[in-house]
Computed example of a mutant assay.
Amino acid sequence: MSETDIDPLKLIQPRRKVHGTTAVLLPFTEGGQIDWPAFDGLLDRTVAAGLTPAVNMDTGYVNLLDEATQDQVLARTRQRLEGRRFVAGAFVRDEPGAPFDLDAYARRIDAIQSAGGVPVIFQSYGLAHQADDTILANYQAIAERSDEFIGFELGTMFAPFGKIYSLDTYRGLMAIPRCSGAKHSSLRRDLEWRRIALRNETRPDFRVYTGNDLAIDMVIYGSDYLLGLSCFAPDAFARRDAMWEAGDPGWNELNDLLQHLGFLAFRDPVPAYKHAAAMFLKARGWLDCSATHPDSPRRGAADQELLDQIAATLRERLASS
C-alpha cells in the first residue's frame, strides 16, 4: 500500500454499526479527593448509553495516579459493572532511553484482567521507541501475558513517550491474534484512513479505534472509537451512532454539535480538556463540581459560559430527536 492510493470516499460505510468506547472521567471534589460516588454515576451513564467504559485512561489521569489508586479504580469498576465489558489502561512510567519493562506491563495486565477488564497498552519509551522489529517483539511478549489486549499509538502532542508507528509495524501488530484492535491518536485523517484500508484488506475483525477528538466522523469510514470527548455526552454519542446505523439524516446536525464541543474542549493545551469535561458534566447536572486532579491543567472561567450554551443546545437536540 502506497502513501497516496487511499480514496477515503471508497471507505465510507453507510449504515454500519459503530462500536463506541468512552474514556470515563475520574471526578474530584473541591478538596482534591476522588469523588467515588460521582465516578459510579458516570460509569452507570456510560453503560446505560450502550457504550463500553474505559477507565485508567488519560481522561482518568492514569499518568498522575499511583498503582494503588489505579487498582482502586479497577475494583470500583468491577463492582459497579457486575461482569459487563470494560477496558482499562495499562500504563508504565519510564524515561527516555529506558529498556522495555515487561514485568511492569505484566503487573498492570494482571491487575486489569483480574478485575475482568481488557488492557489497553499505553506506549512507553521502552516499548515504542525502538526499531520496528523490536517493537513487534515487545508486543508479542505482551500478548503472551494477555488473554486479549488493545494496542495504542499516540502522537507526541498527547504525551512525550508517544509514537505513531510505520504502516509495516501496524501490519505486524494486526498479525498478533490476541491484539483485538488499536487506538490511533495522531489527529491525522490520512494516517487513520490507511490503517482502516489495511485492516479491511488483511484482518476485517480488527478494530481501528479512532482517538481523533477533532474528527469524530471517522466512524463513517470504518473506525470505531475510544474517545475522551464521548465522556462529555455518552448518551448523545450513542444517539448519533444509532442515527448513522439507521441512515437518519439528523446524524449530521448532532455530529456537528458534538464536533463543535470537541474543537472547544481539545484546543491547546490539550490536557485541559479534562477540566472542560468536568465543567460540561456539571452543566448537565451529572457532577456537583468541576474540580480536576490537582496536577492537571485547567481552562479559564470564560469557558464555562460557552460550555453551558453547548449543553443547553444539546439538551434541546436530544429532546427533539
Rank of each mutant, 00 (worst) to 15 (best):
L281S: 09
E305C: 11
G285R: 08
S290P: 02
S296V: 10
H275W: 02
R299A: 10
Q309T: 14
H293Q: 04
R299M: 12
G300P: 10
D295V: 08
C289V: 10
A276C: 10
F280Q: 05
Q304D: 12
L287C: 03
A278E: 01
L306T: 12
L318D: 01
A311H: 04
G300K: 13
C289G: 09
Q304K: 12
R298Q: 13
G300D: 15
F280N: 06
S290V: 06
D308P: 09
A302W: 11
H293R: 02
A276V: 08
D308K: 12
F280T: 08
F280H: 08
A283C: 13
A302E: 15
D303L: 02
H293K: 05
A311L: 07
P294E: 01
A312W: 11
R299W: 10
R284T: 09
L287T: 03
T313G: 12
A312P: 07
C289N: 13
A278T: 02
A319R: 12
E305H: 14
E305N: 13
P297F: 02
T292S: 11
E305F: 09
I310Y: 11
T292Q: 06
D303W: 07
Q309K: 14
S290I: 07
A311E: 08
A311T: 07
A291D: 00
A276H: 08
A291W: 00
L281Y: 03
A312L: 14
M279V: 07
A283V: 13
L281D: 09
L307R: 05
K282M: 15
D288K: 13
R284G: 09
H293F: 02
C289D: 11
L281C: 05
T313F: 06
A276K: 03
C289K: 00
A277I: 10
S290F: 06
E305K: 15
Q309R: 15
L306V: 11
G285E: 08
C289Q: 07
L307Q: 05
K282G: 07
K274R: 11
R315L: 12
A276Y: 06
A278S: 02
A277V: 10
F280S: 08
T313W: 09
L318W: 03
G300F: 10
I310V: 15
P297Y: 03
K282D: 06
M279D: 03
T313L: 14
L314A: 05
A283G: 12
A278G: 00
H275D: 05
P297W: 04
Q304M: 13
P294L: 00
M279A: 03
T313H: 12
R298A: 07
L306W: 12
A311G: 09
L307M: 04
A276M: 09
L281V: 04
C289I: 04
K274I: 02
Q304C: 10
L318P: 00
R317I: 06
A291V: 02
C289E: 06
L281P: 07
K282N: 10
H293E: 03
H293I: 03
L307F: 10
L307G: 06
A311R: 03
G300H: 13
L318V: 02
R315V: 11
R317K: 14
L306F: 12
K282R: 15
F280G: 07
R284Q: 15
L287V: 05
R317S: 14
E305Q: 15
P297S: 05
S290W: 03
